[in-house]
């Protein structure tokens, strides 16, 4: 690792179940994106061909997307984090609006407001892509004009989700410690204090309450 080695205590950020959900969802998403590019772009399609194979991979990886999200719910930590992502506080609104949101004056919990909004948009877009994907894959389900609408919606939501993913990856590239958190489940206390102070304080409090 290239970041400076400082004597720093680690704190737990993500349990194994959450990291597995993330990893599986990421792999499925990447396969969906690569196959989508081949299906959509004329030059790629003509170079690769085999439309039925590419389509089958795309469709079934897409249908599999909710599986890790649902299976993750066996983990209590995952359910708790979903609850946190769902709830938007007054501080979150402030954080979104503030030009100096990262200076530490607005308390940030386990997830900042941007991460929450991103999670909603990714979840909602995935659902829309899944639903419209079903309509395109089984053309008997709805009439032609709705299939045309489903194509329209599928294309635009795919573009939107693609941009969200580009942003997600760009933020991750800039922050090795955040990536370590998702890879190993642990982050340094220093990082936690800097990025998610309210959460870091809460973790410390919980630990000092714990008699073990």
């Amino acid at each position: 690792m290239s970041e400076p080695v400082i004597a720093s205590v680690d704190v737990d950020r993500f349990v194994l179940a959450e990291r597995l959900v993330h990893r599986v969802f990421a792999v499925l998403t990447i396969v969906c994106i690569v196959t989508a590019a081949i299906l959509y772009n004329g030059a790629l399609m003509m170079a690769v061909g085999h439309r039925h194979v590419v389509e089958t991979i795309h469709v079934w990886c897409g249908f599999a997307l909710p599986v890790p999200l649902v299976l993750g719910a066996v983990s209590k930590a995952y359910r708790t984090d979903l609850g946190i992502l769902n709830r938007f506080t007054r501080a979150d609104w402030q954080w979104l609006r503030s030009p100096s949101r990262r200076d530490g004056t607005i308390p940030v919990g386990k997830f900042n407001a941007g991460q929450k909004v991103n999670s909603w948009l990714v979840a909602g877009s995935t659902g829309v892509l899944l639903g419209t994907g079903v309509l395109l894959y089984w053309p008997d389900l709805v009439r032609l004009s709705w299939r045309a609408g489903a194509t329209f919606v599928h294309d635009w939501f795919a573009l939107g989700l693609g941009l969200l993913i580009v942003g997600h990856v760009a933020y991750a590239m800039r922050d090795p410690e955040a990536r370590r958190g998702m890879r190993t489940g642990r982050v340094s206390r220093t990082w936690a204090k800097a990025e998610h102070e309210a959460w870091a304080d809460e973790v410390t409090r919980r630990r000092s309450d714990d008699p073990s």
Binding site: D92, G124, W146
Partner: peptide
Amino acid sequence: PVADEGAPIGRRAVLGLLGLGAVGVVTGS
């Protein structure tokens, strides 16, 4: 206190997007 709990905006946003998708399917053409 409401400020601590926050509102379940995430669920609303996800449902809103799904609704937008459904409207898009019907009117998209």
